[in-house]
Structure formats: C-alpha cells, structure tokens
Design a protein around this nucleic acid. Structure first.
Lengths: 174, 174
DNA sequence: TATTGTTATACTCTATAACTATA
DNA sequence: TATAGTTATAGAGTATAACAATA
C-alpha cells in the first residue's frame, strides 16, 4: 500500500477562445463535476436489494419514462435490443420489472417497474438527496442560494444545447 | 417507438429540516447533477481506441495516481484484486498499461499508463471539457462567473464533508 | 418486406475460492 | 505466517448474427 499518492490534478491555465469560453473555466467546471460524479456513485451502494450498476441504470430509465418498449430502453442505455432483452430477463427474474405486449402493436414489449422496482428507485433518489444534503449542510444558506441559482442556469443551458444539436447521441444505427 | 414520453421529474416541494437544508433544495441540486451525469457519459463515447466503461475507469484511476499497485487500483475501482488483475490483463493486451514488480517489495505489481494510455486519457479530458464548454457557451459571462464561484464552494463543501466522516467508502471488506 | 423482439454464440467483467511467490 | 497477486470456475453483461412473430 505504498503507491497511493494522488497527483494534483491542477492544470495549466489556458485561454482557448472557442465559443468565447476560456479553457480554464471549462477545466474548473469539469473538475468539480468529476467530484460530484464520485458522490453520485457512492449513493448507489447499499441499496436493498443490491443490484448491478447496469440494472440500476435500467431501473432509472424505466422510471423516468414510466413505461417504454424494449427498443426504447436499449436506446436509453446506449445498448442494442438483444442486450436489453437479456438484461430484462434478469430484472424480471428479480421481480423488479414486468414485460407485456403493447395493445396497439403486439410486436412491441412494454416494460414497467413492479412495486418492488418502484420502491428500489425511490430508495435510490432518497439516498442521492441525502448525499447532496450532507454536502449542502456544509455551506452557508447564502452559498446554497447562489448554488441553486447557478445550477438552475446551468441546467437550462444544458437543455438549450441539447435542443440546438443534431441529437445523434444514443443511436448506434450508424 | 410509441412509448417514449419522459415523465416530468418535477416534484412536491417539501421542507425536511435535517441538517437545516430544505428538501426541495437538495432535490433541485440532485436533479441538475443527474443531468450533468448524462453529459458526462456522452463524453466517454467515441474515444479512440474504444474501450469499455470499466476499462476507462481504470485508466482514469491510474492517471490520477500516476503509478499504483494492483490492490490500490482494485480499491479505487471498488473491486477485488482478482477482478482488477483480469482487467489489467486486457488493458495490457490493448497496450494501454504496463505491469512491473515494485523495487521495494517484489510482491507488489505497479501499474502505469503507456504513452498510448496517456493519449487516451488526454483525449477523454479534452472531450469532457469540450462538452462543458458547449454548455457554458449557452450562458452569459456573468452566469458563468456565478457558476464557477458556486461550484467551487460546492466542491469545497464536498471536501469538508469527506474529511469529517469515517470514510468507509471503497471497502467491500464488510 | 419491414419492424420488434428473442435466441445462439462468443467475449468482457465480476466474485469466490484455491493457488504461487515474496516478506 | 501474512501479504500481493494470479488462476480456476461460474455467472452477469454485451455485441453480432440468425431467428420468430407481427405489421
């Protein structure tokens, strides 16, 4: 255990003019978001029942859409239908989801969370909020208010960027 | 493709007093961070050479520490040594890392990135910064400045929280 | 014929347990 | 003997390709 010194990730301030955003600004945001990504993954541990990260992503996607077909799930996960099918085999065996043919088009299979699946997702969101709250508790109310405003603007900018792009994201059709 | 309407994730404003942080504040931050997590995963696609998410996490960890032993890598990844060993087999075969016995204690195996591994990591960071910059470009300079300040404070609060806790995170010894 | 999903096969990733080498 | 890592085995997750059912 003698080889565990992390290197400082601090970088060389630069000024790339692309988009009018200085490179060191982008770098600073990138670093903080990397930290929060760690916070995020921790909240996923200790769930009951414990499932794999991939299964958890599937549960999240199904929860987000309420009900969606298998192809849609695959697309959300950035996977292909056959992989999603196998994944659903296990989620179904675990009692977290159910599969049923769509009424409109019986070729489609609709995937939904069971009550147990819903409870698992609720548990996940609760754990994340708790993690966030733990961090926020170490900030002053003023800082918290500034953070909310800034993050809200950031979220809106994310949406503006998304809508202003060709949206070739989850498709592996190419 | 008829089942793809996302449910609005907006919630019921509440006021849990735990830690003095209102629940709707924590929920708002949680939602924005969920969005950025998506932004993050997109930046990992299209890397050359294309490697699995797990291999990429390993490359990141090795880059962060510069050089570390196999047990340390396993701990960073939240995995056990045997899994990390197999993972390194493939990273080594792909020419991204090298393994070598430590001078001080020849039982330890030091893992380092090759030049190709370093290039891959550089590519990843560049893609993330580009993604962040694309979003920041949709914000005013004033908003950007506020975001930087707020995120910096948030990052510092993360560190305060980390240091003020028992730190039972990556251990699966239990 | 085109679309939706499943199955066959093969490889990656992971954990448990048994093993080798060094200290 | 204790520690660091590897190998054997088994199961989850994934992609490619071939298949069945519905439209």
């Amino acid at each position: 255990m003698s080889q565990r010194r992390p290197r400082p990730s601090g970088g060389e301030p630069a000024d790339d003019g692309a988009g009018g955003v200085p490179d060191d600004v982008a770098a600073a945001v990138e670093r903080v978001l990397s930290t929060t990504a760690l916070l995020w993954s921790r909240a996923e541990q200790g769930l009951e029942p414990a499932i794999s990260p991939i299964q958890l992503r599937a549960v999240e996607a199904i929860s987000r859409f309420g009900r969606l077909n298998l192809g849609g799930l695959a697309e959300e996960l950035g996977a292909i239908p056959s992989s999603a099918s196998r994944l659903c085999d296990r989620l179904e065996a675990a009692g977290l989801i159910v599969r049923e043919p769509a009424r409109e088009d019986r070729r489609e299979i609709i995937v939904r969370l069971t009550d147990q699946g819903e409870r698992l997702h609720t548990q996940l969101v609760r754990r994340r909020r708790t993690a966030v709250r733990d961090v926020l508790a170490h900030m002053s109310p003023t800082s918290r208010a500034r953070l909310i405003d800034a993050l809200t603007e950031f979220g809106q900018a994310c949406e503006r960027r998304d809508s202003g792009e060709a949206r070739v994201v989850g498709s592996r059709t190419a």
